[in-house]
């Protein structure tokens, strides 16, 4: 059967070797393949995130999304897990890096893995994709409207998240950024600041800001969905990954 994929939940070693669950998908046809780590958004490892993982597998990638809330809420529904994680302060940055690193190791250990792995995240995951790419050996990173890569995070968040400006010199791979012109976090001024910082550091990056789109324009089941931006964005993502991971 051509174009078949297999998808399901696996256990991986996350930050500090902690066993955590992850949603994994792979094409069944043989052949050397790169991998993609999909960082879920704050609502958790939900149906939409799993669809994204399967989309990458259908496109020929090993793809995985680690459940960043597994420790707080093993086996819980995604929305309950997200609520539990938020009530306990969210995901610390060092733990995020460890979990994404464990997911990337899992992909690289697949018998047919090419060894090249990228990371993509949406919303809060967009910031975390950049964070991961500053600390882990990644070959590509995609930031979809991640807030507080630059700019000032809010006071009062239980875990004080910081922007990533001091970490950007460590970005180790090309970065694709996809943003909405009507978004406030990140605002066009903030993505312009990020653009300038990366240029100053000599980091390869490619940013697109879509007019008429705000935050979460990829989210097909939300009012924020903007099909023109989303369709063009997906095209840019796969062109970018084809160049960085499959070349």
């Amino acid at each position: 059967m051509d174009e078949a994929i297999r998808a399901g939940v696996v256990e991986i070693a996350g930050h500090g070797g902690d066993p955590i669950r992850a949603y994994f998908a792979e094409p069944l046809e043989s052949g050397s393949r790169p991998g993609m780590v999909v960082i879920h958004h704050m609502p958790g490892l939900d149906r939409q995130t799993k669809e994204t993982v399967r989309r990458f597998a259908a496109q020929g990638y090993f793809a995985i999304s680690p459940n960043l809330y597994w420790r707080e809420a093993p086996g819980a529904e995604p929305d309950d897990a997200a609520a539990a994680a938020r009530a306990r302060g969210g995901v610390p940055d060092d733990r995020l890096v460890g979990d994404v690193g464990g997911a990337a190791d899992f992909l690289r250990a697949r018998p047919l893995a090419s060894g090249k792995v990228g990371v993509i995240g949406y919303c809060s995951g967009g910031r975390q994709a950049v964070l991961a790419a500053c600390h882990l050996p990644m070959q590509a990173a995609v930031d979809c409207y991640g807030a507080f890569v630059v700019g000032q995070p809010p006071e009062g968040f239980p875990i004080p998240i910081s922007n990533l400006t001091a970490q950007l010199p460590n970005l180790g791979c090309p970065l694709l950024g996809l943003f909405g012109e009507d978004d406030q976090h990140p605002s066009p001024a903030e993505t312009a600041e990020l653009d300038a910082l990366l240029t100053g550091h000599g980091k390869e990056h490619d940013f697109t800001t879509y007019p008429g789109a705000g935050h979460a324009f990829f989210a097909v089941d939300r009012p924020s969905y903007r099909p023109e931006a989303a369709v063009d964005g997906w095209g840019r993502i796969f062109a970018f990954l084809g160049r960085t991971l499959e070349g």
């Binding site: 958004h41 704050m42 609502p43 939900d46 707080e72 809420a73 819980a76 529904e77 995604p78 929305d79 309950d80 897990a81 997200a82 609520a83 539990a84 938020r86 009530a87 919303c123 705000g214 935050h215 979460a216 939300r222 009012p223 924020s224």
Partner: peptide, 28 residues
Amino acid sequence: DHPAHAPADHTLNIDLLNPDLGPAARVA
């Protein structure tokens, strides 16, 4: 923040919890 179910970009979300009973012990 973003809702899990409501058809809106942002909603005012309230969780009433009993963490001792697990993540599903929630009124949302």
